[in-house]
Design a protein around this nucleic acid. Sequence first.
DNA 1: TTGAAAGCGCTAACAC
DNA 2: GTGTTAGCGCTTTCAA
Lengths: 336, 336
Amino acid sequence: MPSKTTLKDLANLAGVSVSTVSKALNDSPEIGARTRQRIKDIAESCNYVPNNIARSLKSKSTKTIGVIIPAILIEFFNKVLYGIEQEATERGYKIVICLSNESSQKEAESINTFINGSVDGVILSVAEETQKSKVYDHFEKSAKHNMPMVMFDRVLDDITCDKVTVDDFDGAFKAVKFLSDLGSKNILFLNPISNTSVGQHREAGYVKAVSSLNQQPNIVNVSHYTEIEKTLTTVFKNQKIDAILAADEYSAALAQNAARLNNLDIPQDLSVIGFTNGMVAEYANPSLTVVSQHAENIGKIAAGILLDRIEGKLKTEPVNKVVKTKIVERNSTKKI
Amino acid sequence: MPSKTTLKDLANLAGVSVSTVSKALNDSPEIGARTRQRIKDIAESCNYVPNNIARSLKSKSTKTIGVIIPAILIEFFNKVLYGIEQEATERGYKIVICLSNESSQKEAESINTFINGSVDGVILSVAEETQKSKVYDHFEKSAKHNMPMVMFDRVLDDITCDKVTVDDFDGAFKAVKFLSDLGSKNILFLNPISNTSVGQHREAGYVKAVSSLNQQPNIVNVSHYTEIEKTLTTVFKNQKIDAILAADEYSAALAQNAARLNNLDIPQDLSVIGFTNGMVAEYANPSLTVVSQHAENIGKIAAGILLDRIEGKLKTEPVNKVVKTKIVERNSTKKI
DNA sequence: TTGAAAGCGCTAACAC
DNA sequence: GTGTTAGCGCTTTCAA
């Protein structure tokens, strides 16, 4: 923290008291126009900037919100972050970010980083490990401290706070319908994220939709992206599949590449839909039809709720906002 | 900023003075073991967490660094940010981020946000508008405030501060050599970022390398990605090109897609190399050979320098670190 | 071994 | 109109 001129310095230079300087700089009507201008000039010439830390201590408000995301290199989270930043900036707040890297411990540390008064509230998406272990101590702790908190996407039913979720069930359901309307009869669900709440909701939506069409669910769970090519090659050799719904964007791209390796033309022989509308989907060849979750918008909504909560604009009951998905049609799907 | 129990509260509960509590919680040897434990127990039961704002005010150190990047949705910056976060976390610092969105004004506002004592130092990459306009007032201001500052990737020669840059000239030079060694004789340079310093360095490296091979430079500048398909189609029709070096990842992917539209097989008929080793390059089909700038590493280096500077571990002269690029070979290039 | 007091930089109620 | 004073929550000398 670089050294700076303080109110006291200005007071000495101007030959007045500290409070006079403070009032003058804050345009208080108590101070005469002449003195005020004189003080302002001095401040200007000294490059005076008020110390925010001192202000925060006094005002008990930091104008800062904390964000905890599992990963920043996952484009969905990156986009949400972008949405949060926009809304926060618009409303005069800064954001400080911590990454949990899907680890419960880092998540807890991040909460602790924020619980000590350095932010006015927190936006977060739950780490995979936490969703598995179901150990929520750190969140209960932050709740005890009355820290305004909104969870998005990966949320915890057991924790009471504001929430913004994506209707993943409905998204998967709509995607299956979309494929079915195109003529697909054997739709496979490729899931690399089966251990997150999100992955499970998508699977459930898929199962429901497929069942309602009197088709058998055909689910392929993979624990790592590197397995996809081999696994799908086996599938292509032994089953007749005419569509794949992938639970995220990367698996959709890899499914597409695997299909090409097996001499399947997309979208002629096989339609592919992925979740998440990101760069990979956009620049893929053929470009991917996807279920968009409006990531940026989710960020804006979450930040909006948090700031309303911080500023006391919300009733006491927690908000529970569900965002609908939208299918963005590109070239990996086609009527057959 | 949620309400909290303070040292004073604990002092009242324990029937001792505030300073005793402070010392006890900080394990000062001045305090007896019994009292210390008793106070710690009380603090524990009250969920006491020391107020960081107050601490910062006292210590004149926020353990926070500010980051200003032009955009977060550009994967290169996202990766650098990831690197910064890792290094910062490792060394006990938080990061707060501001986006300039390539605007000088937002950049200046962000600097002002940081100059008021809320961070110990700043890492930034210069906004495109600032690079064009050459108006550097805000940076001079922050320099006046002795704010430790490191610029990365897009840096300003006129501003004295620590810098981390990529050897873009050498990167482009090596890429041309690489293509030439593969047998390419007509290498086109596709540049969608010709108005940034980075884009210009890459172009210069390309020109130098091509000239040294006694080939004519063939440069296509585009002002927007949407032009690429049409522009290249014209090129393919009228010239014989056997390789494309694209100044970023997205244009490389689009060049590849344009080639396919024109029935050119990659890498058989045409080799493609892009700058930036990101998701799009990795998931493209064929996967793209790229010039990697080690984005994550740049972030770590920049943060390392800044923290060394903040902690007084550096001599006074500014550090000027140049990071070499590396060619990551994939399937869009092949010996002909 | 514990406590009183000053001070980090700022704001604001109150007094002059 | 301007100054005095107290206080935000914490640390840290110095005194007891």
